[in-house]
Design a protein around this nucleic acid. Structure first.
Length: 488
RNA sequence: GGCCCUAUGGUCAAGCGGUCAAGACGCCGCCCUCUCAAGGCGGAAUCAGGAGUUCGAUUCUCCUUAGGGUCACCA
């Protein structure tokens, strides 16, 4: 048996930002293709002319590029199966629909939008539920069809569903699924504006582009029997379906705005790294054979396999994403990390000189999301209003009284330093502690509070002193001493 | 409501008839420590319920329950 080369496709509609669910679908399509030496195709599905959003196509390109999902064929780079934008393929679909009509597998329907609406309303008024189109035009006499067509009556072309029996299709993750044909509506193939519906265009294009694996969210599961019937009507090979479990919010419902950031752009805006996002969503609904969790995109290509995809919906967990992001930050080369935070540092220090390497050293193990950086180091550029109670620390046996005594000594010692380096500050403070028979903390705690005005700081007193510089450090110490003195 | 899907700790999840039911996030404790992180060590926490099948069910079948998806000239 000859194995056809694997071809997957990402087929988004350009209707706005890229939702993480869509991103994950694109990722899995990419991984399925790459893990089997296949091709990954990008196709833009813009058959709904009303929902098009300006710039949405470039968002798609940007996002794919940002996360490293390189497509092998697409509107921007071409390929052997173009065009890759459905609106540019518009003329292709009609002949297929007409072919089906000729063969008695589809029919012209002249029902007006109003009649359809009435149908739905009366069904609901009866307390029942709308069960789809009533097949009013399904058996129109040929002469009548010709007459209406000739008269220029607006029409759609509908697929004729079998009236009885059932349809079974096979999904690579969900297994065999069977549905009674009586459940299937005579779906529209060609809309009255001449555009194909999504369902129709999808089948035609996937076949034309020789797509072997149709990967999409499980919300499409219930419309898949209709796809199957379409492939059968044309006598085409049915592709391998790979339906993906939904990504939901912490309330179990489909992930949406109220759960927080849901688009890739939102996530990046909140300070997450593209690589961390990809790594996290790769593991949302898929699991490798071992217990590994950290993967680059290339590594994912090596280990991905369809049988690791799960069936149940996954809750998007921002805590776990945080962890991944922290891991990625900590794993960076120091120089890369400096480059990453440089823009933020520039903003915080606003033109003042600062010591990037030391700041980076303090920040790298502590930073979870880029956006947290300003708040973490703001105290370095602006003196804080703080309560003298911060000088209390029972573990170190430190109190405002004790601080009042030790701070002047510390200040003097630092003022006398010939060099203001990390090592010099460190040595002098340690010597001071030893000389006064104090624990390290009894020197460092009051100093850190005096310098930062915060109970929690990235790094310790020594690092803060070095970053602040001699002048500012001594000034802040003097301020603290003054406040402590005037308290009693 | 019809149809379809799903069901292991709070979350992601391994498991595919016999396990003390992995691992990770989060949480708690300890260590390290001038604070917070990072790091190290440890801990609590899971098979929705009920019938079967079987020598033996988390695992297979059925029912119940609970979630979700879908019922457009949207994708």
């Amino acid at each position: 048996m000859i194995q056809k080369p694997v071809r997957t496709r990402y087929a988004p509609s350009p209707t706005g930002l890229m939702h993480v669910g869509n991103l994950r679908t694109a990722l899995y399509e990419y991984l399925i293709a790459r893990s089997q030496g296949g091709s990954f195709v990008l196709r833009i599905e813009d058959t709904d002319q009303e929902r098009l959003v300006d710039g949405a196509v470039s968002v798609i390109y940007q996002t794919l590029a940002q996360v490293g999902l390189r497509h092998d064929e697409g509107p921007d780079i071409g390929g052997a199966f173009g065009p890759y934008v459905q609106s540019e393929r518009k003329a292709l679909y009609r002949p297929y629909a007409e072919q089906l009509a000729r063969e008695g597998k589809a029919y012209y329907c002249f029902c007006s939008k109003e009649r359809l609406d009435r149908l739905k309303e009366s069904a609901e008024a009866d307390g029942g539920h709308f069960n789809g189109y009533d097949r009013h035009c399904r058996d129109l006499p040929a002469a009548e069809v010709d007459r209406l067509l000739a008269a220029g009556t607006p029409y759609v072309i509908r697929q004729k569903m079998p009236l009885n029996g059932s349809t079974t299709f096979s999904d690579a993750v969900y297994g065999d699924i069977t549905v009674d044909n009586s459940e299937l509506e005579d779906q529209i193939l060609l809309k009255s504006d001449g555009y194909p519906t999504y369902n129709f265009a999808n089948v035609i294009d996937d076949h034309a582009m020789q797509i072997t694996h149709v990967v999409r969210g499980s919300e499409y599961l219930s419309s898949t029997p209709k796809y199957n019937l379409l492939y059968e009507a044309f006598g085409w090979d049915v592709p391998t379906y790979v339906h993906l479990p939904l990504i939901v919010g912490n309330d179990g419902r489909k992930l949406s705005k109220r759960h927080g950031a849901t688009s890739f752009a939102d996530l990046v805006g909140e300070g997450y790294l593209p690589a961390a996002i990809i790594n996290y969503i790769a593991l949302l609904g898929w699991c490798p054979k071992d217990t590994r969790e950290l993967f680059t995109l290339d590594e994912l290509c090596q280990v991905f396999s369809i049988d690791g995809i799960s069936k149940s919906p996954s809750v998007f967990d921002y805590d776990k994403l945080d962890w991944f992001n922290g891991e990625y930050i900590r794993a960076m080369e120091p120089s890369d990390f400096v480059a990453l935070i440089r823009p933020e540092l520039d903003k915080v220090f606003a033109g003042r000189p600062y010591e990037a390497p030391l700041l980076a050293e303090l920040l790298q193990p502590r930073l979870i999301r880029l956006t947290q950086l300003p708040a973490m180091i703001h105290f370095l550029v602006e003196r804080q209003d703080y309560s003298l109670d911060l000088f209390y620390n029972k573990k170190n046996k430190v109190s405002p009284d004790q601080a009042k005594t030790i701070l002047p000594v510390i200040r003097q010692s630092l003022a006398d330093l010939p060099l203001w380096t990390r090592e010099a500050v460190h040595d002098s403070l340690m010597a001071l502690a030893a000389g006064q028979q104090l624990k390290t903390g009894q020197v460092m705690w009051p100093l850190r509070i005096a310098l930062s005005g915060q109970e929690i700081t990235p790094g310790g007193a020594i690092e803060i002193a070095v970053i602040l510089g001699r002048e500012e450090s001594l000034a802040r110490l003097q301020l603290a001493i003054g406040r402590l003195n005037e308290q009693q």
